[in-house]
């Protein structure tokens, strides 16, 4: 049985200046499932996320989301497409001059002409979903880390997006708050039939929520599959990531000495 695909990434290359961050990534994100992108620091997770959000233009390759190639889409098309996407950023990205409720309503006020009563009720429905209803009138500066993440999630889902991106939902949270957020992500998938992409390196969370897992390493896709397939992998990089084994770095003595003494840099500049 073929699975419907929400996001198709083909031969994606992303560079910052001369630095290649993602190298020839091919990845399918299935519709209506929770896909987790994981990998160590510097593996390219955030760059892949930024590329999918249309915030970083790839050097080459294609990203088709719900049938639209966002790499070649015009700014107007991208703007229209973003109405189908919700993003909860790692730090929340809430506007500090607005209350929690006002932050959450913002996409509705920007993109719709709904009646004020409808906007207010929708806001409270979403606040209730993330257990933030009593905190509608607080300012972002008055929120804890977990509350900020939940408020950001409420804003991300206010337009009932087909695609939800969640950057590091568990980072910096206590285990209970983190587990509550995991439950919420699963409920959102089940009840609202969202395709959810979560970027994280929190292993406990990954295996609790993921239908599919993609592991990045050194700018490439190491492995993509179900949690069972990932667990069964004997690829040393996957095993290392799952067992939290420190990376083994092969050292070229001469090259390392040249780097430390500055000779390498000098020869690079020539």
């Amino acid at each position: 049985m073929t699975q419907e695909t929400a996001i198709e990434i083909r031969d994606l290359v992303v560079e910052y200046g001369n630095r290649r961050i993602l190298n020839s990534i091919d990845l399918d994100i299935p519709l209506g499932q929770i896909s987790v992108i994981m990998g160590g620091s510097g593996a390219g997770k955030s760059t892949l996320l930024r590329s999918m959000l249309g915030l970083k233009k790839p050097t080459s390759g294609a990203i088709r989301m719900l049938g639209t190639d966002i790499c070649t889409a015009s700014p107007g098309q991208l703007q229209e497409f973003r109405k189908q996407m919700g993003v909860a950023f790692q730090g929340g990205a809430l506007f500090t001059s607005m209350t929690v409720g006002e932050n959450i309503q913002l996409p509705l006020r920007q993109h719709t002409r709904l009646d004020e009563n409808t906007i207010q009720i929708m806001t409270r429905i979403k606040l209730d979903m993330v257990n933030m209803l009593p905190h509608e009138h607080l300012m972002p500066s008055e929120l804890s880390g977990g509350m900020t993440k939940r408020a950001a999630l409420a804003r991300a889902i206010i337009m009932d997006p087909k695609l939800l991106f969640f950057d590091e939902p568990s980072a910096g949270l206590d285990p209970i708050t983190s587990a509550e957020l995991d439950e919420l992500i699963i409920k959102l998938k089940q009840s609202m039939n969202m395709t959810i992409v979560v970027v994280t390196h929190e292993l406990e969370s990954v295996f609790k929520i993921a239908d599919r897992i993609a592991i990045l390493g050194d700018g490439g896709l190491i492995l993509a599959g179900t949690p069972e397939e990932i667990r069964a992998s004997d690829d040393p990089r996957v095993v290392g990531l799952l067992n939290r084994t420190p990376r083994q770095v092969n050292v070229d003595v001469d090259q390392h000495l040249r780097r430390l003494s500055g000779l390498q840099e000098a020869s690079d500049k020539k």
């Binding site: 009563n117 409808t118 009720i121 929708m122 429905i125 206010i158 009932d160």
Partner: peptide
């Protein structure tokens, strides 16, 4: 039905 529809039902 999305949440804007549900909001109409609530109202």
């Amino acid at each position: 039905i999305d949440s804007s529809g549900i909001a109409s039902l609530v109202e």
